[in-house]
Computed example of a mutant assay.
Amino acid sequence: MAVLVEAPTDALATHVARLAPPDHTVIRPPEAGLLMVQGRIGGDGRAFNVGEVAVTRAAVRLASGETGFACVLGRDAEKARLVALCDALVQTATHGGAVERDVVAPLRAAQEAAQRLAEARTAATRVDFFTLVRGED
């Protein structure tokens, strides 16, 4: 699920379309709302409210009965519906492996490549500091 919610909507839609997903019913249309985010501070880890973030949730049911749920950051209704559809499909015997192979694996590979590129760019700007020590005298 983490790979799916981190993926761009257009890439997710492209990979899901290749699966030719079966008929499904939207049982909870995508709806946007706010969610309170908590953080921790201080030596004792006391919780405090950082602020609110926008989230979109959705739920779908396949004709065979499997139900999928999704909650994604932001106000992207189509992404929430697609992630919920993938959640339902992965529960089926016929589509479970295909979702992992044709949707999750390529998206994971693209995310890992982007992460490696960001790490390489960061490493290129690394500066090593050192201290010269004078002899004891």
Rank of each mutant, 00 (worst) to 15 (best):
M1T: 08
P8H: 12
P8R: 06
A11T: 06
L12M: 07
A13K: 05
H15T: 05
H15F: 01
R18N: 08
L19D: 04
L19F: 00
P22E: 08
D23W: 02
T25G: 01
R28T: 10
P29E: 13
P30N: 07
P30Q: 07
L34R: 14
L34P: 11
L35W: 02
M36C: 05
Q38M: 12
R40W: 06
I41F: 03
G43D: 10
D44V: 08
D44G: 13
D44M: 01
A47N: 09
N49P: 06
V50D: 10
V53H: 09
V53L: 14
V53P: 06
A54M: 11
A54L: 14
V60C: 06
V60A: 02
R61V: 06
R61L: 04
L62H: 03
A63F: 06
A63S: 14
A63I: 01
A63P: 08
A63K: 09
E66M: 03
G68F: 00
F69W: 12
F69M: 10
A70Y: 02
V72F: 02
G74H: 03
R75A: 13
D76A: 07
D76L: 04
A77C: 13
E78V: 00
E78R: 03
E78F: 00
K79D: 00
K79Y: 12
A80Q: 05
A80K: 02
A80E: 04
R81I: 02
R81D: 01
C86R: 00
C86I: 07
C86H: 04
L89K: 03
Q91K: 11
T92R: 03
T92C: 08
A93C: 12
T94K: 13
T94Q: 05
H95A: 07
G96D: 09
A98M: 04
A98N: 03
R101G: 05
R101W: 07
D102C: 07
D102I: 05
V103A: 11
A105C: 04
A105W: 01
P106L: 08
P106Q: 07
L107I: 12
R108V: 14
A110I: 13
A110F: 12
E112V: 11
E112N: 15
E112H: 09
E112A: 11
A113Q: 13
A114I: 12
A114F: 08
A114M: 14
Q115V: 11
Q115N: 10
Q115Y: 07
L117K: 12
A118I: 15
A118N: 11
A120Y: 04
A120R: 15
T122L: 10
A123G: 04
A123H: 07
V127W: 01
V127I: 14
F129I: 12
T131W: 09
T131V: 15
L132P: 05
R134H: 12
G135P: 13
G135Q: 15
G135F: 14
E136H: 11
E136K: 11
D137S: 14
D137C: 08
D137E: 07
